[in-house]
Simulated assay, not measured.
Amino acid sequence: MNRAWAAFKAHPYISNVLGYTALFASADLIQQRVLGKKPAAEGSSSINWHQTARVATVGFCFHANFNYHWLRWLERMLPGGGVKVVAGKVVLDQLVGAPLTISAFYIGLSLLERRDDPLADWRQKFWTSYMAGVVYWSTML
């Protein structure tokens, strides 16, 4: 276990990409389980593995890379951890990072699903997702 932890610490970019991919996939699996969608055919799994793969792909291709570089940039611009500094990071993240990542998620999934209108989900869900994130992350200070 110590070797695995040392390898993750020695390669933060790789561990970040693997971590975000696992985080997105597991979140999708939990959501599918909680929502309890019915299986497509009798005897089939209640998990839509294609959906989970698409969510993991968006996490792997965009979110892991963006968040790695974005959070490093935020730390360089606002180093430290006092209340004012952390509040500044949260405000910048909510004004710049959150809209980009939410948009990439909904548009990326729509493109992977080959939807006719890749912006339909984004138009429907962006503001609700954005406002929930603002409320949540603002209280995590």
Score class of each variant (00 low, 15 high):
75 E>Q: 02
35 L>N: 02
7 A>I: 08
79 P>T: 00
110 S>Q: 03
128 T>F: 14
137 W>N: 14
69 H>M: 01
7 A>V: 05
115 R>L: 02
125 K>E: 15
51 Q>P: 05
107 I>K: 07
18 L>C: 07
31 Q>R: 04
6 A>M: 00
2 N>Y: 12
134 V>L: 15
76 R>Q: 01
25 A>M: 10
46 S>A: 15
66 F>P: 00
81 G>Y: 03
69 H>D: 00
135 V>P: 02
130 Y>F: 14
98 A>L: 03
34 V>W: 13
126 F>K: 13
102 I>V: 15
109 L>T: 12
135 V>E: 11
106 Y>L: 11
10 A>I: 04
34 V>P: 08
74 L>D: 11
60 F>C: 02
8 F>K: 01
129 S>A: 13
14 I>A: 06
126 F>Q: 11
118 P>R: 04
110 S>H: 04
122 W>G: 11
35 L>K: 04
90 V>C: 10
131 M>I: 15
18 L>D: 03
99 P>L: 13
138 S>K: 12
37 K>M: 15
26 S>P: 01
61 C>G: 03
101 T>R: 04
24 F>G: 10
94 Q>I: 01
13 Y>F: 10
27 A>E: 09
28 D>F: 02
24 F>A: 11
19 G>V: 01
116 D>A: 10
86 V>D: 15
22 A>S: 04
94 Q>H: 04
106 Y>A: 07
21 T>S: 11
38 K>E: 12
96 V>E: 08
31 Q>V: 05
29 L>N: 05
50 H>A: 15
68 Y>E: 02
122 W>K: 08
31 Q>Y: 14
43 G>V: 04
20 Y>R: 04
83 V>P: 01
65 N>C: 03
84 K>Q: 08
46 S>M: 12
19 G>L: 00
101 T>M: 04
138 S>E: 14
104 A>L: 08
112 L>I: 15
71 L>W: 07
6 A>K: 00
9 K>C: 11
109 L>P: 06
82 G>N: 01
55 V>W: 11
47 I>V: 09
53 A>P: 12
130 Y>S: 09
35 L>D: 04
12 P>F: 12
71 L>M: 08
33 R>Q: 09
17 V>G: 00
84 K>E: 07
35 L>Y: 05
58 V>N: 01
61 C>H: 03
37 K>T: 13
88 G>W: 06
5 W>M: 12
52 T>R: 02
91 V>W: 08
97 G>A: 00
8 F>C: 03
85 V>G: 02
44 S>N: 08
50 H>W: 13
11 H>F: 09
3 R>Y: 05
99 P>M: 13
81 G>Q: 06
9 K>I: 13
16 N>W: 02
56 A>I: 10
66 F>G: 00
117 D>V: 07
128 T>S: 14
46 S>N: 13
121 D>V: 07
12 P>L: 11
62 F>M: 02
15 S>F: 06
59 G>C: 09
124 Q>S: 12
84 K>V: 09
41 A>F: 05
90 V>L: 11
129 S>P: 08
26 S>H: 07
104 A>F: 09
31 Q>I: 08
97 G>D: 00
65 N>P: 07
10 A>R: 05
72 R>W: 15
84 K>P: 01
28 D>Q: 05
28 D>W: 00
